[in-house]
Every structure is written in C-alpha cells, then in structure tokens.
C-alpha cells in the first residue's frame, strides 16, 4: 500500500478532479438556473442571477403549479409507501423460507427469483397492461403498488437471502424450545434482526419508485392519480417548443430534493443499499 504521492497518484488525481468537474457542472447549472428568469438564462448560462429572491419564488411556484406537485406528491407518498411495505414484507417471507427452511421445490423458487434479476420489466409491459385491464385494475393506484412490489422482489430477496443466511440458527432454535410458534419466531426474532437488510433494500426501492414514470405512463390515465415523476414529464424538453429553463430547473430541484436530502443524511447506507451484493458472502 502506497503512502507517498508519486507520478501515478497525480495522474489519478487529475482524472478524478476532471470527473469531479463533470459531475458538478450539470447540478450547479440546475441550481443556478432555478434562480434565473429565462431571459437571464439565454443571456448567459453561467451568469449569476440578477434578482434571485423574487425569481426563485416565481419559478418555484410556477413549477409547482405546472407539475401539479401538490396532488402528485400525495399520490407518490401513498404509492411508494404501500409498495415499499408490501415488497419488503413479501420478500422477507420468501427469503426466510429459502434461507432457513427446507421445502420441496426450493431450488426452483430460488431460480425463478434469480431469473427475475436479469429480466427487465420493460419486456413485460404489454402482458402487464392486458392483465391490468383484465382484472379491472387499470388506472388504479393499487395496480402500481402491486406491480412495483412484484418487480422489486428479486433484488430484495437477493439482499435478504444472503443476510438471513448469516444469522445464527441458535436464536431460532432457542425460541422454538421455549415454545414460540413459527409466526412468533418470524415476527419477533427474524424481522427485527433483518433490519439492516430492510434499510438497504428500502433505500434502493425508494429511489427506484420515486424515479419511475414508465409504469405510471402505462397504467395510469387520469391526471388526479399521477405520480410525481409523471408530473415531471410535463417539463420534458420537446423540440420546437420554447422552454422556460428557469421553471424547468426549479421543477428539477423540487423533484430531486427528497433524494438529495436522503443522500446527504445517509450516503453510507444509500451506497450500501444500491451496491448490496458486491461483497462476497
């Protein structure tokens, strides 16, 4: 392990600093532009805002109205909350059975989950659409919840199975000998112990659900049930139309704020959650 800075270190550093700049530029521009009017933006992308206070207020209120953020926020909270709960619950159930119990067809079930890891939900959009219409679930919040939950299960199980395998068996056995039922062992011993895996998977799912607009586009048709990311689609840049960059960037800031906050507070857990599975075990 090197401790002194040599030529190699400086070369690496140059690359890393260049990449840092490349990462910062778009976000810096986003925050800067959200405080500028459209005229100011076209006058100079990097010029400082002339009257930030008033422009910020007008940009953000215009963005809030255009993206219908009020009702979309509420929808997103309901959908993301329920989907998170459902997905984690279903995943921990099946993961527990796979990791710690013996049953017939265990290998098949595990393989089915692994196939799901490699399958993009996009290939199933048409059949899912047919299914939603057939079940009369089209244009309901419930269909988004259950589809989100099902889609996330392979990844959640992937994290949870390896985690559950690492918990010592003695804990369960001791509780069983004391006369605890299966469901009590599961609810009062296993679930509390699995908390780190819940956090990792939960963060991943939150970011995934928050950003998703594809399911929304496919399965929701009325505006009152839109999620926040579908509201964001209002700001998609369409060539031929004049774009108000100040308002667009203000909408981006609103949309990104919860994730930015989550990242600033819990970046360690976020990194752990998203890259779970990279560590041997």
């Amino acid at each position: 392990m090197k401790t002194k800075a040599g030529v190699g270190t400086w070369l690496t550093r140059v690359f890393l600093i260049l990449w840092t700049i490349l990462i910062i530029i778009p976000f810096a521009m986003m925050f800067l532009t959200s405080a500028k009017t459209n005229e100011e933006f076209y006058a100079g992308v990097w010029a400082l805002p002339k009257n930030p206070g008033a422009t910020i207020a007008s940009n953000f209120s215009a963005a809030w109205a255009k993206g219908n953020f009020g009702s979309n926020f509420l929808n997103t909270i309901i959908i993301v909350g329920c989907a998170l709960f459902l997905s984690l619950l279903l995943s921990v159930m099946i993961s527990y059975a796979i990791a710690r119990k013996e049953f017939k067809g265990k290998k098949t079930v595990h393989t089915l989950l692994l196939i799901g890891l490699l399958t993009s939900c996009m290939v199933g959009l048409t059949p899912m659409f047919i299914l939603a219409r057939f079940l009369g679930l089209f244009n309901t919040r419930f269909v988004l919840i259950i589809l989100f939950a099902a889609r996330a299960m392979p990844f959640c199980c992937f994290i949870m199975i390896s985690f559950l395998k690492s918990i010592p068996f003695e804990l369960e056995e001791a509780a069983m000998i004391d006369g605890a039922s299966n469901s009590r062992v599961f609810g009062q011993i296993i679930i509390p112990l699995t908390r780190p895996a819940f956090v990792s998977a939960g963060i991943f799912l939150f970011i995934d659900y928050w950003s998703d607009y594809m399911y929304g586009l496919m399965f929701i048709s009325s505006k009152s049930k839109n999620t926040i990311s579908m509201g964001m689609l209002q700001f998609r840049v369409v060539s031929g139309f004049k774009i108000d960059w100040g308002i667009t960037c203000a909408a981006c800031v609103i949309f990104i704020a919860p994730i930015l906050l989550l990242y600033v507070l819990f970046h360690k857990q976020v990194m752990g959650g998203l890259t779970a599975g990279s560590v041997k075990g």
Partner: peptide, 28 residues
C-alpha cells in the same frame, strides 16, 4: 404446522411475483 407455515411463507409472495412480474415478462 411447520409445513403449512412454510407453504404460506412461500406461496403468497411467489404468487404475487409470478402473476405481476415474471409471467407477464415471459408472456410477451
């Protein structure tokens, strides 16, 4: 009891997963 418990633990999640994700993907 154990058998029923495991069956419920596997069958419910598997049902949701197959119906709302994996089967649609392959039904294409």
């Amino acid at each position: 009891h154990d058998k029923r418990f495991i069956l419920a633990m596997v069958a419910i999640p598997l049902f949701v997963y197959l119906i709302f994700f994996l089967i649609p993907c392959f039904a294409g």
